[in-house]
Amino acid sequence: MKRFCPLSVILLMGLTLVLVSSRHSQHYIVGEKAEDFSLKDTEGKMVTMADYKDAKGFIIVFTCNHCPYAQLYEKRIADLHRKFAPLGMPVIAINPNDPDIVPDDSYTAMQKRAKDKKYPYAYLFDEKQLVYPKFGATRTPHVFVLDKDRIVRYIGAIDDNPETPEAVKKRYVDDAATAVLRGQKPAPDFTRAVGCTIKKK
């Protein structure tokens, strides 16, 4: 029985490939270093984390124009920037959506919204949709707090009440950013939240 069965070999190779690839997480988890990115802001300038010379960390927020959750958090994102940018930890907002699917999230719509709402922070466009998968963002808004070495220290929600800011009990991002600035580990360092799925083709 020396018959060689190419089909079974191919199947076995395929199975191994699937198993190997599913073992390794494809995106950052807390404790891992985030790669820098270069994305266009609403004024047409390319922005990288390295541009922020004296940054003591970053609050990276994947957000967008159209999502009602993102809209509810818009003011709170600006407040985070106003509080933490002077302390060396600016907000960088990134729109990860494909505007072919959501026209409201197009680059021109981003420019308009940033202007109308007077965003105090950089609002970047992940046009090629290559940055958000590295972070493992799945929804908007989805926040990643990074320390000065760009190590991811917190992943998750902004706080525990999207609809009623006055009823918020846990300010996750505020607490995480404060901890990171003090050189401490945020607790919790991971939270879940309802949000709009990131739209891709």
């Binding site: 998750g156 879940r192 939240a193």
Partner: peptide
């Protein structure tokens, strides 16, 4: 229930809250 971080894992431990 506004406290999504508390209730989402009670549906599924791997769910991150994106819908549907």
């Amino acid at each position: 229930d506004p406290d999504a971080d508390s209730w989402i894992p009670r549906v599924d431990s791997l769910w991150d809250g994106a819908i549907p």
